[in-house]
Design a protein around this nucleic acid. Structure first.
Length: 340
RNA sequence: GGGUAGUUGGUGGAGUGGUCUAACACACCUGACUGUAAAUCAGGCGACUUCGGUCUUCGGGGGUUCGAAUCCCUCACUGCCCA
């Protein structure tokens, strides 16, 4: 799933996404709540209507913003037992999100899958601090589940129509904390379970053992959602462990920054199945070959590397669109191969 | 022909006696990015180097000074004004 955080995949239109065969996508509770605000989303008829996207949408709870905004930058807000206080990065205004509110907003969005508000601390925190985050995540998950059940009832949503709800497993790099968190969440009962916080250590090494162990703890009939993962290689590894849902900004963000993904071969059992290159590099100035001769995306069907390089150098917005489209097409092909 | 202001690294442009290989910006080279505060951010950007340094740069040449991008002379070029 690409991240359409604020209700759009940056630089791409609905038609662009449909043309490459895009399916489910991820939107963000916190960002949509801030802008355009829930009144607008509700008036438009929900986030599907607003975006005009009829395939499944999953909303992230704003839990990641607890990490990316507050843990990384304490003046951006505060985490208390009861709630999260965010200082809006847009205008500095103060916003309070409780676990209950996060769920209410997600019902108002009208998504197909929602996520409990969680507390993802950096893996570098002490074990005691991470344990505190695990315990808080569990208490918040319980409150989310209660609110979820209440909303289903109040909104008279039939069982077959109800959105799926995910709990998020914290615990950093500690296997015992991951276990504690998973067991606690399973006890509350969710449709799926997400792997929370970062899945790489401070040196960028993939937390193979933690991911594998955590996957093994999740009940067989539940969905396993590896939040924010990852590179094509990371995704292939995770699928082998049993993880079956992914979202990531890599294809779009790195595309906008000039990194292009191309296939070397389609044997995913070998680690070297793809490579990346930076189209910004000087050597592409006069490279008139296609980015990937076998790719059927708009970029590869029409343009050369030299032209794409030129679009980037001239800061032409079309660059971001073509690069994002190509990289997403690469990820879609990866999903097709993984489903086989 | 006379007067006047100017000439700084790829570009624009600071700097008017030592702390100047020379601010800053742009351009250029490279890297990073994993539930999006990201069309962002970081590093590099005279030459050589045993990484401690060494050498060469502020239009050309000459001079003053312990020391010059900075002061003086001269030449060249450019802008503007007057004839």
């Amino acid at each position: 799933m690409p991240d359409a955080t604020r209700g759009f995949v940056r630089s791409l239109s609905k038609n662009d996404l449909e043309k490459i065969g895009m399916g489910p996508m991820v939107v963000n509770t916190y960002h949509l709540y801030l802008q355009p605000g829930m009144e607008t989303v509700k008036k438009s008829g929900g986030i599907h209507q607003f975006m005009n996207w009829d395939k499944p949408l999953l909303s992230d709870s704003g839990g990641y913003q607890v990490f990316s905004l507050i843990h990384k930058n304490p003046q951006m807000g505060k985490i208390t037992e009861n709630e999260v206080i965010f200082k809006s990065p847009l205008d500095g205004s103060r916003h309070v999100i409780t676990p209950e509110k996060a769920i209410q907003i997600q019902f108002d969005l009208g998504v197909d899958m929602m996520v409990c508000l969680d507390d993802p601390p950096p893996n570098s925190y002490s074990k005691a601090k991470i344990q505190k985050a695990v315990e808080r995540t569990l208490r918040w998950a319980e409150r989310c589940k209660i609110e979820y059940t209440k909303q289903i009832k109040e909104r008279k949503i039939a069982e077959k129509d109800r959105p799926l709800i995910f709990g998020v497993i914290q615990g950093g790099e500690h296997l015992d904390l991951r276990k504690l968190c998973t067991e606690g969440l399973v006890k509350i009962g969710f449709d799926g379970y997400g792997f929370g916080a970062r899945h790489v250590d401070s040196e960028g090494n993939f937390l193979e053992e933690v991911l594998e162990y955590t996957a093994s703890l999740i009940p067989a009939d539940a969905l396993r959602f590896a939040l924010g993962i990852g590179t094509p290689r990371d995704i292939v590894r995770c699928v082998a462990m049993g993880w079956d849902m992914f979202d990531c900004v890599i294809p779009t963000r790195e595309g906008r920054h000039g990194k292009i993904f191309v296939w070397k071969h389609e044997d995913l059992s070998r680690e070297d199945f793809y490579e990346t290159f930076n189209i910004n590099n000087e050597k592409y100035k006069n490279d008139f070959s296609p980015v990937d001769a076998d790719c059927d995306c708009e970029l590869c069907q029409n343009h050369t590397k030299a032209y794409l390089h030129h679009l980037l150098r001239t800061k032409e917005p079309l660059f971001m669109r073509l690069a994002s489209l190509h990289n997403l097409k690469f990820y879609i092909r990866l999903m097709e191969l993984l489903q086989k």
